[in-house]
């Protein structure tokens, strides 16, 4: 049990350190979230935009700038989470493979990545919600943060998928940016006349967009749409998991041979620390 905990703790710590040293992502978090959200609020007209919220069936008339600020926050959170996970996956797949071949339990590596994604998404979602609350007061701030969090999770998992599948960095960045733009622009009733189209419910951030809009302008709870967003996350995470499993596979037959005892050491060669728990994965 302690070994499992150590494996998870080490992997989680180093995964978070890796994200923390992604300076560009940190700058994006600090600057992009408030700039985009504030510009959307300040630059857009506050004319009421009449719309029917599918999540609750209510007819709403939110201020256009507030609606765009929510859309901007979603855009910022999804892009940052997607970019961070893509960058880590793209540059770290060979290292993950090496760790797995050395015997690191893959389940613990995956769990560490999911934990890091959850923490990053939670931090960025909380920050974006706080920035919005500085300008105006959404009806349900906690629901807004939860929506942004779920959208961040989903795009983080998509970033892992793109990082596994695509061969060039620019391809991954383009894929994340275009997915987010198409996904959110089509759902925005101010910029898209087709926002009521039933096809929209199949977009990756549909659940989060509905939940965050409800959070901004309604008092109705919308757990179903948060669950829908988590389903999207689950599907994207499953594809990412399959990609990780494939890229870290070991084609050698597993042989459990215990490591030699200290008597097998030869003078002149420094004896390594004794293996605490011999692992089958160490002996291929």
């Amino acid at each position: 049990m302690r070994s499992h905990l150590t494996c998870f703790a080490v992997a989680a710590r180093f995964t978070l350190i890796e994200h923390g040293r992604n300076r560009f992502a940190m700058i994006l978090v600090v600057l992009f979230v408030p700039v985009w959200t504030s510009l959307a609020y300040l630059a857009m007209p506050d004319t009421p935009a009449r719309m029917r919220l599918r999540a609750t069936g209510e007819a709403l008339a939110p201020h256009g700038n507030e609606l765009t600020a929510i859309s901007g926050a979603l855009n910022a959170v999804t892009l940052i989470a997607g970019f961070m996970m893509f960058a880590a996956t793209f540059s770290g797949s060979g290292f993950d493979r090496r760790l797995a071949m050395a015997g690191y339990p893959r389940a613990h590596l995956v769990l560490a990545k999911v934990t890091a994604l959850a923490l990053v998404s939670a931090a960025v979602a909380t920050y974006a919600t706080a920035v919005i609350c500085l300008a105006w007061t959404p009806r349900q701030p906690l629901l807004l943060a939860a929506s942004l969090f779920c959208a961040g999770l989903t795009y983080g998992a998509l970033g892992v998928v793109f990082g596994s599948l695509l061969r060039r960095e620019v391809e991954g960045m383009f894929a994340i940016v275009m997915t987010s733009i198409i996904d959110l622009a089509l759902q925005n009733p101010i910029t898209s006349s087709g926002a009521d189209n039933p096809v929209m419910r199949y977009l990756p951030s549909y659940g989060a967009m509905q939940a965050s809009t409800a959070a901004g302008f309604s008092t109705s709870p919308v757990p179903g749409h948060l669950a829908l967003q988590l389903t999207w996350f689950g599907l994207a995470a499953l594809v990412a998991l399959l990609g990780f499993r494939h890229s870290t596979r070991n084609c050698l037959p597993t042989v459990s041979t215990p490591p030699p005892g200290p008597e097998n050491r030869t003078a002149g060669i420094p004896a390594p620390p004794q293996a605490a728990t011999p692992s089958a994965t160490e002996a291929h």
Binding site: S91, G94, Y104
Partner: peptide, 21 residues
Amino acid sequence: VLNDALTVRQHLTFFQTAYRL
């Protein structure tokens, strides 16, 4: 095959855990 964000010591710790040393 290294992780550019980690130090040499952190690499040793990562692989110490992998090899169960």
